[in-house]
Simulated assay, not measured.
Amino acid sequence: MPVTETSRQREDFRALVRDQLPRLYALARVLVGSEAEDAVQDCMVKALEHYEQLHDPGAGAAWLKTILVNCCHDRLRARARQPEPVDFDDREAEGFSLYRKIAYEDPFPYSDSVHLDFLYGFSRDDVRAVLLALPDIYRIPLVLVHMEGYLAKETATLLQVPLGTVLSRLQRGRKAFEKGMWDYAQTHGLLKEGVR
């Protein structure tokens, strides 16, 4: 039985999905949390519908990631047409510096590398918990730029917002993440020597 173009495309699509599914799901979990499976499913449906538009099989991973980011963005928009207002007038949060806080508080007094000791106290799950606690408008640009390697300009295009908005959200998101790391460490007892 001869192999048709359609059956070859289906097999190529299956192979691409098998290879990329774990990465897509991990990214979706960070972007939309509990809606990750639905977002990945939306991504697969859209990708299958438009697979013939993918002319370079080597670009398949980036193509799927872009579709997933758009699906996640659509879900977040549907979740709340207006993002929750976040009050960053609080001078403590706005001017917070994790580096200075660790140096001032000196949670590991006998350490020569206090900043590294602080970071080593966090597991992947701890960092994920801090990241997921951030508001969507800050978490998504942080993940896309710092974890997925998108440029700020590409992130602005994906999120359909001006570049200045993305840069502002990145700055505020980094400050909120730093403060979240410190607060999480205090709450979960990570500021004790020998915790991990």
Rank of each mutant, 00 (worst) to 15 (best):
135 P>S: 15
154 E>P: 05
129 A>P: 04
156 A>K: 03
167 L>D: 08
152 A>N: 10
148 E>H: 05
127 V>A: 14
125 D>T: 10
132 L>S: 14
158 L>V: 07
117 D>A: 09
149 G>I: 07
163 L>V: 11
153 K>S: 15
124 R>S: 14
117 D>W: 02
159 L>F: 02
147 M>R: 14
121 G>K: 04
155 T>E: 00
160 Q>A: 15
136 D>C: 01
119 L>Y: 09
125 D>W: 02
129 A>D: 14
127 V>K: 11
121 G>C: 08
162 P>A: 10
141 P>W: 06
131 L>T: 11
146 H>N: 15
130 V>P: 06
144 L>A: 13
126 D>R: 04
154 E>A: 13
165 T>K: 08
124 R>C: 00
156 A>I: 03
150 Y>D: 03
167 L>A: 04
156 A>M: 04
164 G>Y: 01
163 L>D: 12
119 L>N: 03
143 V>Q: 08
151 L>P: 00
142 L>W: 07
128 R>V: 12
166 V>N: 00
130 V>H: 01
148 E>P: 00
161 V>F: 02
149 G>N: 07
158 L>G: 08
151 L>R: 13
118 F>H: 03
133 A>F: 01
155 T>Q: 01
133 A>T: 09
141 P>L: 10
125 D>Q: 13
161 V>L: 14
149 G>H: 10
